[in-house]
C-alpha cells in the first residue's frame, strides 16, 4: 500500500512537471519571437528530419541515432552557424507532420527532403537549394511500367506519401491513375510490396535509397519533374535563413558540401551527382 502511495505521488509529480512544461512552452509562443535569438542563447538548433528515408535520414536500429545526408548537412550547418560548440537536436517528422510542427514551433527548421514549391513558399520561407532532386518511379523488376505515361490508365494505382509534392504531381502527369497516400515511405514501400499499387513515386534520391536495399525493385523512367530541396523556416525568421544560406554557400566553397554528397550518394548506381548538386 505504501509503495502504491509513493508511485501515485511520483506520478502526480510527473503531471506537475508536464503541466509546467506546457506552461513554459506557452510563454515563449509569442508570435514574433526570433528563432535565431533563441538558438543562439541555447546554442542549439532543433531540426525536423526524416527517420524513414534511406540516404537522407534513417533511424539506425543499433545506435538509435538517425543517419543520412540531411542529418550530416544539418550538423555541418549548425557548426557553421553557431560555432564549433553548436548543438544540433533532431526531431523526427514525416512529410505530413513537418509543416504543422514548424508552424507550431516544435522545430526551428525543416531539413527533410522538402521540395521548394510556390505553394509552400506562401507558408514557409526556404533556404537556397541544397539538393536538386527530381521525381521518379519505382516498380518491381519485370513490371510493364517504364515511365510516367504508362501509369496514365484507368485501374492503375500509384503509391505516394501524404503531404508530399509527388502525390500532387502524379495527379497532373497521370490524371487517370488512382493515388493512394500513405503515412511515410516505409509504409508506402510496404504497400508496393504487398501489391496495393503498381508503382511508388517520389523523388529519385529517396527511391534509389529504397532500391539499394531491395534488389527486386528498381527506379525507372528518369526524372519527370524538378524537385529542388530547400531548408524551410517559419515566415518572419529572415535572420535565421540568412545565416543558414551563408553556411551552405560556404560549405559549397570549402568542399564540405561535395564531401557529404560523395559520402552518401557516391556509390549509388545510376545516380547523377552533378544533377543533384545544381544550384
Amino acid at each position: 500500500m505504501k509503495r502504491l502511495k509513493n508511485l501515485l505521488l511520483l506520478l502526480c509529480l510527473i503531471l506537475v512537471v508536464f503541466s509546467l512544461n506546457a506552461c513554459g512552452n506557452k510563454k515563449d509562443s509569442a508570435q514574433n519571437q526570433s528563432v535565431w535569438q533563441k538558438d543562439k542563447s541555447t546554442n542549439t538548433i532543433t531540426w525536423g528530419v526524416k527517420a524513414d528515408t534511406r540516404l537522407f535520414g534513417l533511424m539506425d536500429v543499433k545506435s538509435g541515432q538517425i543517419r543520412g545526408f540531411d542529418i550530416d548537412m544539418a550538423k555541418a550547418i549548425t557548426k557553421k552557424v553557431l560555432g564549433k560548440s553548436g548543438h544540433a537536436k533532431f526531431v523526427q517528422v514525416t512529410s505530413k507532420t513537418r509543416i504543422p510542427l514548424l508552424k507550431n514551433k516544435n522545430i526551428d527548421a525543416i531539413i527533410a527532403t522538402m521540395t521548394i514549391t510556390p505553394d509552400r513558399e506562401k507558408i514557409v520561407d526556404f533556404s537556397q537549394i541544397y539538393f536538386a532532386a527530381g521525381q521518379s518511379l519505382m516498380v518491381k523488376k519485370g513490371s510493364q511500367i517504364k515511365n510516367i505515361k504508362d501509369l496514365n490508365k484507368d485501374g492503375t494505382t500509384v503509391l505516394a506519401v501524404k503531404g508530399s509534392t509527388s502525390a500532387v504531381n502524379v495527379k497532373k502527369y497521370a490524371p487517370k491513375a488512382k493515388v493512394l497516400e500513405l503515412e511515410d515511405y516505409a509504409q508506402a514501400f510496404t504497400a508496393l510490396k504487398s501489391g496495393q499499387g503498381e508503382a511508388l513515386t517520389t523523388d529519385n534520391g529517396i527511391l534509389f535509397g529504397i532500391a539499394s536495399e531491395n534488389p527486386a525493385y528498381h527506379v525507372v523512367g528518369g526524372t519527370f519533374t524538378k524537385e529542388p530541396y530547400g531548408i524551410a523556416f517559419d515566415k518572419g525568421q529572415g535572420k535565421m535563413r540568412n545565416k543558414v544560406n551563408a553556411a551552405i554557400t560556404e560549405m559549397r566553397r570549402d568542399g564540405t558540401y561535395q564531401k557529404l554528397l560523395q559520402k552518401w550518394f557516391g556509390n549509388v548506381a545510376g545516380f547523377d551527382l552533378k544533377e543533384a548538386s545544381q544550384q
Partner: peptide
C-alpha cells in the same frame, strides 16, 4: 505511433521498413 512517439509499434515499423523480410 502516428505522432511519431517511439513506442512499440513505431519501432517495429522502423525495423521492417528497413528490411521488409522482417515484416
Amino acid at each position: 505511433t502516428i505522432i511519431v512517439l517511439p513506442e512499440l509499434l513505431y519501432r517495429a515499423q522502423i525495423i521492417y521498413g528497413q528490411n521488409t523480410r522482417y515484416m
